[in-house]
């Protein structure tokens, strides 16, 4: 009931005064949540997030965010540096569990199952919700072993031929095949930064996750490689859901169907990408995309 009410109220743009904004910034505790404007919820969600709060020790990094990720969509997350995009993304496959000081409250559901439920095992969860990190982090093993690792531990292949095939398709889809097909046994750490990032993408898609979380996957890539990754994202969307954090608004506009704008731990606005970029509801969003902020 409450949710619907919330939903309804969000339909109307609520403008926040400059004073309130400053006050929130000064207190830093983000005690009063800003209401999200736009359309954070969808009809057929793959993942649903409700009232997510994240604390690093005593410091609150994310304040009561509620948002859905639809099936077969690309959701872009934009916002100034340090506003909590990565933190939020890491809530979706419980990567924050590894940070000792980090505490997450609220509810995240994947296909209706609460992933923070005590009896949920993070191992299959992370196989279903894959992640590409902000900094490329290949294993110090061969290119082949980097990609083979996921399928091996999850027992996805029966024999070497199947494994070889997965590796080839993953590399092709990540746009790396032509560059590395002759040196699959070379160490993955010997590749260039951009190649490493594509290797990490290939490693993630090799286990066929249902949701892929990408944290600035293209920040180290040249325009050609970026275009290839964007193609890949478009292709993956036909099967999977993708949440991508990016600093490039053009990229967000190119690849995503919906865009979420983050500001200092708050989810300010969510909406269809076209709408957010052409006609933002919230002043802060407008400031940001027009370059007046951040």
């Amino acid at each position: 009931m409450e949710l619907t009410a919330n939903h309804a109220s969000n339909a109307f743009p609520t403008m926040l005064s400059e004073e309130m904004l400053e006050e929130a910034e000064q207190s830093k505790t983000l005690a009063t949540a800003r209401k999200t404007v736009g359309t954070p919820f969808v009809d057929t969600p793959r993942m649903t997030c409700r009232d997510i709060q994240v604390f690093y020790g005593d410091k609150q990094a994310i304040n009561k965010m509620s948002i859905d990720v639809a099936s077969n969509e690309v959701l872009a997350m934009i916002g100034p540096s340090g506003c909590g995009k990565s933190t939020f993304l890491r809530c979706l496959n419980r990567m924050n569990d590894t940070v000792l000081s980090c505490r997450v409250t609220g509810e995240v559901k994947l296909d209706g199952t609460d992933i923070y439920h005590p009896s949920v095992d993070v191992v299959p969860l992370r196989a279903r919700v894959g992640m590409v990190f902000q900094k490329p982090n290949p294993f110090p093993k061969s290119i082949y072993d980097n990609i083979a690792y996921g399928p091996k531990i999850h027992g996805l292949t029966k024999n070497k031929d199947e494994l070889d095939e997965i590796i080839e398709t993953s590399l092709i889809r990540a746009g790396l095949w032509d560059e590395v097909k002759d040196r699959l046994q070379d160490p993955g750490t010997g590749l260039s930064g951009g190649q490493q990032q594509r290797l990490c993408i290939a490693r993630t898609i090799a286990v066929s996750p249902e949701v892929i979380l990408m944290d600035e996957p293209c920040s180290a890539l040249d325009p050609i490689a970026t275009a290839r990754v964007e193609e890949l994202i478009a292709e993956l969307r036909t099967q999977f859901s993708i949440v991508i954090v990016t600093h490039s608004m053009q990229q967000a506009a190119r690849v995503s169907q919906r865009t979420a704008y983050f500001h200092l731990g708050d989810l300010i606005e969510v909406g269809a990408t076209e709408k957010v970029f052409t006609n933002p509801l919230h002043q802060l969003t407008e400031d940001y995309i027009t370059g007046r902020f951040g």
Binding site: M95, F139, R203, V207
Partner: peptide, 20 residues
């Protein structure tokens, strides 16, 4: 980052430690 990489594709804690 190596631990994150392994955990991120669904390796268990034990596998992360012993494999990587």
């Amino acid at each position: 980052s190596i631990r994150e990489a392994a955990l991120g594709i669904g390796a268990s804690k034990m596998q992360t430690v012993t494999h990587h």
